[in-house]
Structure formats: structure tokens, C-alpha cells
Design a protein around this nucleic acid. Structure first.
Lengths: 235, 235
DNA sequence: ACAAAAGTGTTGGACTTACACCCATGC
DNA sequence: GCATGGGTGTAAGTCCAACACTTTTGT
């Protein structure tokens, strides 16, 4: 097949990844400080240009690995952003993705990128001008996506370590939704929901007062639909 | 700002629109027959290249208008598809959208496009090779999106005319979900759900046996969240 | 003993489901 | 009258939110 040359406009395509975690009772997103123009000095989502023979998903996975060293992390495509003026360098469409990383593994930021670090989402979204490009919008959309996915999928287990207590898991919901949940009701619902969590039989060594908590693990890795959804309290 | 020239790979960006409707008790999608290579003779979603100064949303709206003559139709971005080999002409990323058009206005296909026509979704998705590119995947994703959005938003009213009976509305759910719904329970749920439908006070002139049905209209145009979701029967 | 976290029981109310049943029309 | 679709009533079962209460630890 002959090389395609036409008068169709030329685009560049990037992937940006909103890597989210829960840390210190806050929903946080991994951001890099930009060194170069445009938006030098501003914060931005990790991302980069898609390689010539690379699928969009592979490009996002590559970015994720470069920034966090993590592989096998659940992520999915979020949306694409391509307003004409969004990047002064030309016509650039960004295919944004969302990824969820567990809290304990998230302490370390990327080694490859320049000054990658975690930032609490709430103050970021209230602020103006801290994020370059249209990345504030992307983060907004990513958070909304995660909020709704918590309700109907097993996504929450992606936020916690391989073994976790139900309090750990409950905290994920409380932080992401911004509402406290009844511990007892949460316990019942989670344990009664099929394919969500499985007991390990062991206990977490107690770290303070209170009865020691049972350790659980996700029944299946990744994001799966829940037979019984976790109800989200109204605002 | 200087023109951007770099060694980053060059892409072309298209928008494709899955325009869905319910007709003859079937979920249908508007497709065009391709005249040119690649995939000449195959069916494909209407779509085209994004113009140099056009936003992705505007490009999708333009395609929608060119194919159906309709404006002010609710639509939203679905996902982007950019596998390296998906288009032999080069590296082309398609930003797919979903649009819903009302049944009565949908009889006429586009005048601009070549042989646009409605096709039932189910046999299409069961078949092999009738659709060009990766458009079968896009249609699959579009249908899944619509199925879940019916549950939690007012999307269903976008499938019916401005004035409709509750049977009309119920039929949308039944066709899209592939399950019959209890007419009585549906009635109650829809009328009790806030911001969903409003009575007109008038009746539909009867067209066959049976008690004449009340005419309703959507309380708000477009797609809005439902305070009380319509429950989806399990398979 | 006391506080705190984990986990179980209970209860009233909301919602759903599966019908029965009445209403209004065409034939 | 009878079939058909529109619409209301109703009762059993399920689910849920709230909160009391028990269990097991640290201090």
C-alpha cells in the first residue's frame, strides 16, 4: 500500500495518564513538573508521544511503567482531548487514561521523569493555574470516573495492598467519595458480595488499640463488575 | 510560537459516530457503504477527518449533521481507537462518538453520504466481515455504553419523539436490554422518578384496540442522571 | 478500667417483584 | 361481548440505614 499523503491535517498524538492512589486519607494524583515550554514550571500529568508502531494502550502502559515502575496495574482509557488551542506546538490530541495504584507501593515516584510527585486532588482542583494544558479537566474527569466505578466494580481493591483489612478498603470509599460509611454495614456488604474479597484467615498484627482486623485479599485481580453494588451515600 | 516540527510520528485524526435509534423493535445503527479503498464495498460508521481548526466535538457534530440533518441531538464521546494497523493508509486515530436519534425522525438517512442506511445491531455484531476497519468493535462498545446509560440517566427519552407514551418509552428499554419489563411497574417507576417525564394531559389518538395512552414529554432535554434508576433485569 | 477498633444483631422503612384487577377502546 | 393495551392496587420478599451491642486489643 502506498504511503498516504493527502491534504488532511497533521496531528500528533500523546497519551497522558492520571495515576491515582489513596494516601494519608487523600485521593492523590501523580504529577510531573514541566521543565520545558510550553507550561514550563507548571505541573502536568505524566505522558508523552505515541511511538510510530505503538498501540494507544501500549503507550499508556509504557508511560505508567516509566513513571512508577509498575506493571500489571489496572488502567483504562478515559477520554480524548483535542481542542485546537490546547497545545501551542501544534495540533495535538491527547488520549487520557486512568490508572489506580495501591497505596503502599505508591510512596516512590518515578525515577525517569523529572520531579514526579504525589499531589492531593482536592486542593489541586480548587486551585487555578497550577496545572498546564487542559490537565485540570482531565484530572476532574478521571476522579469522576473513579467515583462512579467504585460503586459498581471491584476497583476499590486496586487501591490497597495485596492483603488488606476491611477498614483499609472502607477508607478507600470514604476518601474517594468524601463521606463516612457505617463500618458494620460496610463489613456485611463487602463480605456478602460475591467475587469481591476472600478471607486469608490471618489477622493484621495490631497497631494500636482495638480488636485486630482480619486480613483479606481481592478475589480476582483487576476491575470486575459487582453483583451487589456498594451503595454511595447521597451528598 | 514557531511552527512545531519534530521527529514525533505523524497521525491523522478522524471522528466516527455510531448513530443509534430504535426502529421496528430493533436497535439500529446508521452505516454507510464505502465506495473507496480501504474496505470498499464494506459497511462503516459515518465519519471523517477532523478539520485543522476544529474541536473533536465539533467534528462529530458536523458528521452527525451531514449524515442525518439533525442538530441538537444528544451525543457524547465514546472512546478512541488507534491500533497501528487499523487503517492501511497510515497512522489514524479515530475518536468515536455515540449519538441517539428519535425513532420518527430517523426514517430518512443522510443525503450527503453515499448510501447511508439503518442496520439492526444484533445480526451485525454476530456477522463477520460486514463492517470495515475496527468498526464492529466500536459498535459493540457503543451499544454497551447505551445499555448502561439507560439505567442511570434520562437517555431513553432521546430515542423517542418529543411526545411519547410510556409504552413507547418502555419499548426502548425492552429493545435495548432485550428483556420484557412489567408494564405496571415501569409506569410507576417512570412517573415517580423526578425530572424524567411530564404529562401533557393529552392522549394519543388510539390506533388499535386498548385503552388510549397518555402522552408525555421529557422533562429536560439531553442526558441527565436519574434520581431513581430504572432497574435492569438480570439476564 | 477505659478507649478504641472489629464485627454481629436487630429493627423499621424503603423499594422491588409479581401479580390481580379495573379502565377504555376497536372489532 | 371479547381481546388488547393502559393504568392502579396490593402483598410478600428483599434490601438498607441506623444504631445497639459484643469482642478483642492497647494503655
Amino acid at each position: 500500500m502506498a504511503k498516504y499523503s493527502s491534504d488532511h491535517p497533521i496531528f500528533y498524538v500523546t497519551v497522558d495518564v492520571a495515576i491515582l492512589t489513596v494516601h494519608d486519607d487523600e485521593l492523590q494524583v501523580l504529577l510531573v513538573k514541566r521543565r520545558n515550554e510550553p507550561y514550563a514550571g507548571k505541573l502536568a500529568l505524566p505522558g508523552g508521544f505515541v511511538d510510530p508502531d505503538e498501540d494507544l494502550t501500549d503507550a499508556a502502559r509504557r508511560e505508567l511503567r516509566e513513571e512508577t515502575g509498575l506493571t500489571d496495574v489496572p488502567f483504562e482509557q478515559l477520554a480524548s482531548y483535542g481542542a485546537p488551542g490546547r497545545d501551542p506546538r501544534g495540533r495535538i490530541v491527547s488520549v487520557a487514561h486512568v490508572a489506580i495504584v495501591p497505596e503502599p507501593l505508591s510512596a516512590r515516584a518515578g525515577d525517569d521523569a523529572s520531579e514526579a510527585g504525589w499531589h492531593a486532588v482536592e486542593p489541586l482542583l480548587r486551585s487555578r493555574g497550577r496545572l498546564g494544558f487542559d490537565h485540570k479537566q482531565i484530572v476532574t474527569d478521571a476522579v469522576e470516573r473513579v467515583r462512579t466505578k467504585l460503586e459498581r466494580t471491584t476497583l476499590a481493591t486496586s487501591f490497597v495492598a495485596e492483603e488488606f483489612t476491611l477498614s483499609d478498603l472502607r477508607s478507600v470509599y470514604e476518601v474517594v467519595w468524601g463521606h463516612p460509611l457505617d463500618p458494620g454495614n460496610f463489613q456485611r456488604k463487602v463480605t456478602k458480595t460475591e467475587d469481591f474479597v476472600a478471607e486469608t484467615g490471618r489477622m493484621r498484627p495490631s497497631q494500636g488499640p482495638g480488636r485486630p482486623a482480619g486480613l483479606y485479599r481481592a478475589r480476582r485481580p483487576g476491575i470486575h463488575p459487582l453483583s451487589i453494588p456498594i451503595s454511595r451515600p447521597q451528598a
